[in-house]
Computed example of a mutant assay.
Amino acid sequence: MAEEVLASDILIAPSVLPADFARLGEECIGLEKAGADRIHWDVMDGRFVPNLTFGPDVIASIRPLVSLPFEAHLMVEEPHELAPRYAEAGCELLTVHAEACPHLHRTLGAIRELGMEAGVALNPATPASAVAHVLDLCRLVLVMTVNPGWGGQSYIAAMESKVAEVRAMIDDGGHDVELEVDGGIGRSTIGAAAKAGAGVFVAGSAVFSDELGFNHAIGELREAAAQH
């Protein structure tokens, strides 16, 4: 059974995918002022997933505006070739998909050599066992609770058992690894994800669609996660 996630341990990492791209810098500044813990960049190449989003130059242009850590989630083919560009752009953490890395151990090692922390993301159909032998190289494991490629999708509750499995794998091995969930995270779903063992929550639509603003949205998510 997953250990209780304390409110002080809950990290909210807003995805800027739903942001107004014409005001992207202002949006990121607003997220920092609202108490976000980091900014999540959903990087898509139109090949690994059917969408095209941020390149490293866009991220680099925002880096001087905020002090929050940047995590880039590379939903791309051949992420090892792009990794140096995201290091140069100022990303502290780089997450790659296990499905895109035939030599996952080597790729994670290369990310660390670039001075970034490394993460591994798992698509819904990918088993937890895919990260079993690389946890020593990871700072973070990301369990996708939607199929990657688009924002605004519905949360896949069946992924909670995978979250719990990864949580047990991390705890039983004594690894200092964060467990993140991404996809359909909102006030009605974050509690179940927290109960399953997640401690880092990517939220896009739930943050940007809140008519009361970023402060309210982030506060509501923290409260809902803490009440699981």
Rank of each mutant, 00 (worst) to 15 (best):
E71C: 00
R106M: 09
V76W: 00
M116C: 14
P69K: 06
A192I: 14
V66M: 00
E160Q: 13
K195I: 11
R106V: 09
A36V: 00
Y155S: 07
R222A: 07
A2F: 11
V43F: 05
V5Q: 13
L6I: 08
A118D: 03
V141E: 00
L108S: 01
Q227A: 12
L65Y: 09
L65Q: 14
L135C: 03
D136H: 07
A60D: 01
D57Q: 14
R47S: 14
D176H: 13
P102L: 08
R38N: 09
A130L: 04
T189N: 12
P84Q: 00
A19P: 12
P124E: 04
E165Y: 04
I59E: 05
I29F: 13
P18L: 08
S67K: 15
L65H: 08
H80V: 15
L17F: 06
F70C: 11
L24Q: 03
H228Y: 14
I12A: 07
E4A: 12
D37N: 12
M144A: 05
E211A: 13
A2V: 10
F21W: 11
G119V: 05
G109S: 09
A72K: 03
C28S: 07
S15E: 04
G199D: 12
I62R: 04
V58L: 15
Q153S: 08
A225K: 06
L140I: 12
I59A: 02
C138V: 05
H216G: 08
P102A: 07
V134K: 01
I156N: 13
K33T: 10
A192Y: 07
A226V: 06
G30P: 05
I39G: 03
F48E: 02
A83L: 12
V181H: 07
N215M: 11
C101E: 15
V120A: 10
V141Y: 03
A192E: 14
S161Y: 12
S154M: 10
V120S: 06
A60S: 04
M1E: 11
L65S: 10
L104E: 03
S161K: 13
G46Y: 04
P79R: 01
G184Y: 02
Q153N: 11
C101F: 08
K195S: 15
R85P: 03
G191Y: 10
G151V: 06
D136R: 03
Y155N: 07
M116T: 03
C28F: 07
A225G: 09
V96H: 07
A157K: 14
G219I: 05
A36T: 00
D176C: 12
L221M: 11
R139F: 12
V200Y: 07
E160H: 10
E92P: 01
A206V: 05
V16F: 06
N51I: 09
L68G: 01
E78D: 14
L17E: 00
S188M: 14
A83G: 11
T95E: 03
A87Q: 11
R23Y: 11
E180Q: 15
V66A: 01
V202I: 15
A164I: 00
A198N: 05
L52V: 13
R106F: 08
M144W: 02
L179V: 04
T145W: 04
A83C: 14
L68F: 00
H73M: 04
A72L: 01
G197H: 06
L11E: 08
A130C: 05
I185A: 07
H216R: 13
Q227K: 14
P124W: 02
D176R: 15
E178K: 14
F48Q: 00
G115F: 02
G90A: 06
M1D: 13
G197A: 08
L11M: 09
R63V: 10
I170K: 09
